[in-house]
């Protein structure tokens, strides 16, 4: 099989587009179609989904015939840490307030970059948490929970 594929990266991209298109058709299967004169909610998405499937299919076919780029290596570590830090931020924000959320986010995301000392991480976290307080709480007066309940403001 491997010999068949000339552009693995494009093959995967094409397959992704086809899958999204098919999923759209399946999820939107009961959206009313309507007519050209008076279109229902399902008309336009269906046209677009079919277009996406067609384009995806062409990309898949081309990847079997035309030499192209290999798959790129994913940097899973940084990805998980960066996205994870935002999830942590979101989870903490309405439970423990902005300060805790920002500090935790900075610490988690800091580990995405290798070779950083713990001292530096803490310094950056403190500095950015202070900055966030200055800009968003003091400066813009954002209506947001700042400290954990029962502590400070």
């Amino acid at each position: 099989m491997a010999g068949l594929v000339r552009a693995p990266r494009d093959l995967l991209a094409g397959m992704f587009f086809v899958v999204v298109g098919v999923a759209t058709l399946v999820i939107g299967a009961d959206y009313r179609l309507g007519s050209l004169l008076s279109m229902g909610p399902g008309y336009f998405p269906r046209i677009i989904a079919i277009l996406l499937i067609a384009l995806g299919a062409v990309i898949v076919l081309a990847s079997l015939r035309i030499q192209g780029a290999p798959l790129e290596r994913w940097r899973l570590g940084p990805m998980v840490l960066v996205l994870g830090s935002i999830v942590v931020f979101g989870w903490l924000l309405e439970r423990f307030g902005l300060m805790a959320a920002v500090a935790a986010m900075v610490v988690v995301s800091a580990y995405a970059e290798k070779g950083r000392s713990h001292v530096e991480t803490i310094l950056v976290a403190v500095a950015l948490t202070a900055l966030a307080w200055l800009i968003f709480v003091k400066g813009l007066g954002m209506p947001i929970m700042v400290w954990p309940e029962g502590m400070g403001g």
Binding site: E94, V106, A112, V124, L128, L131, M142
Partner: peptide
């Protein structure tokens, strides 16, 4: 040093749009 600051602005920015986690 820069990217944690960018993340910070992005995260607070998205939230402040509709106060929605």
């Amino acid at each position: 040093i820069l990217y944690p600051a960018i993340l910070l602005f992005c995260a607070i920015g998205v939230y402040s749009l509709n106060s929605s986690v």
